[in-house]
């Protein structure tokens, strides 16, 4: 007896795979032989909705929603362990990055705190040219974790008393140049 839902093929998204192929590095998943080395190497696969091996299988089958809404892509910490061990040399971490960006593009990011951190990080860089860690954390807490703001206090305090928490940003000088580069990228369109 099966005690799980069966998804009929007609409900799957048959365009999803070609969309993933179109992403930079996306075609790589073709090479996957489902050996599971990635999932067994991943320090966080035990809490992921689906490990990386299963993600690849889901992508091929067309489980669009399951893939893009999964916590998997946001729990990937970019440690590259899977990528260096993959016997088919798939750049798994890059595929995860590509899936992150696709999920952001399609607004499948509800409740994903890592998105808030990443977005604010990009904002720091676009404003100062450099990351201002103190402000980044403040903005992140305000936007994503205000209810638990207090949990950051002891660590912040430790940094502060040890003079490791600068209150003001280090700015780069030629922001004008950086902005010109960013504007040009906007014009060119992402890859």
């Amino acid at each position: 007896m099966l005690d799980r839902d069966i998804v009929a093929e007609y409900k799957l998204d048959h365009d999803f795979l070609s969309e993933i192929y179109a992403l930079p590095g996306g075609r790589e998943i073709k090479k996957c032989i489902q050996c599971g080395t990635c999932s067994s190497s991943c320090p966080l696969s035990y809490v992921m909705d689906h490990g990386p091996r299963k993600m690849f299988s889901l992508i091929r089958a067309g489980f669009r929603e399951e893939v893009l809404s999964s916590n998997t892509i946001w729990f990937c910490s970019s440690c590259y362990t899977c990528a260096v061990r993959c016997p088919k040399d798939i750049k798994i971490t890059d595929v995860m990055y590509a899936l992150k960006r696709l999920a952001v593009k399609e607004g499948k990011t509800k409740g994903k705190k890592a998105v808030v951190l990443s977005r604010n990080f990009a904002r720091m860089v676009n404003t100062y040219g450099r990351n201002h860690e103190t402000e980044l954390m403040a903005r992140y807490i305000l936007e994503a974790d205000l209810l638990h703001a207090l949990k950051f206090v002891p660590q912040g305090w430790k940094l502060l008393v040890n003079r490791r928490l600068p209150l003001f940003p280090h700015r780069m000088k030629n922001m004008d140049q950086l902005k010109k580069i960013l504007r040009k990228v906007d014009e060119l369109g992402e890859i």
Binding site: P24, S77, S78, Y97, A98, K100, R101, V104, A114, V115, L117, S118, R119, F121, A122, V125, L182, V185, L188, G189, E190, I191
Partner: peptide
């Protein structure tokens, strides 16, 4: 790792 998660070419 954060910028790469939202914009690749940038």
């Amino acid at each position: 790792t954060a910028y790469m998660s939202v914009k690749e070419l940038m």
